[in-house]
Amino acid sequence: MSYKYIIIGGSAGSFQTVTNILASLPQDFSMPIFLCLHRLKHVRAGFVEALSIKSNLKVIEPNDKEYIRQHKVYLAPANYHMYFELGNYIGLSTEQAVNHSRPSIDISFASAAYTYKSKLIGIILSGANKDGAYGLSQIKENGGLTIVQDPEECQVKTMTSAAISATNVDHVLKANDIIQLLLKLQNKHF
């Protein structure tokens, strides 16, 4: 199986893990990575910069209809939902919040699952509500690979536990093992 896209969802307690993942992936890691992280809706600036400090990959907040390229990390902008269109570009929306969240992980994951099918890897990290559980189930149903961070390791377990009860996930792993798995899957990809 060759995976081509990675989508990561998280909220409370996930920032450090996301930073670690981005710091551990090499510059030649080609799969585009989509980050759907709950964040303060009115704070526009600073998040990309904070994630970029240790990242070897370029982190951007995409504009609407921006084409998706390899070697890039796409962070869902504050106060917008992030979709994936069939022409392989990003679609943003200001539709109402889902699970009190905009961006909503369910919306992004379900859209990515539909567009990328079995080429997608979905990862749920630490978080304080159940957003993402439905989205991850859609990735599984569409043949993608589902990974959840081990709740024992999470600062807040609600999101990972909800994801595990909604879906028969492929892997429940500690953050370091998630990184090792991504590196292995990337190498297989060549």
Partner: peptide
Amino acid sequence: YALSSLKSR
């Protein structure tokens, strides 16, 4: 219309 978000609605 943008298909993904419309489909979802």
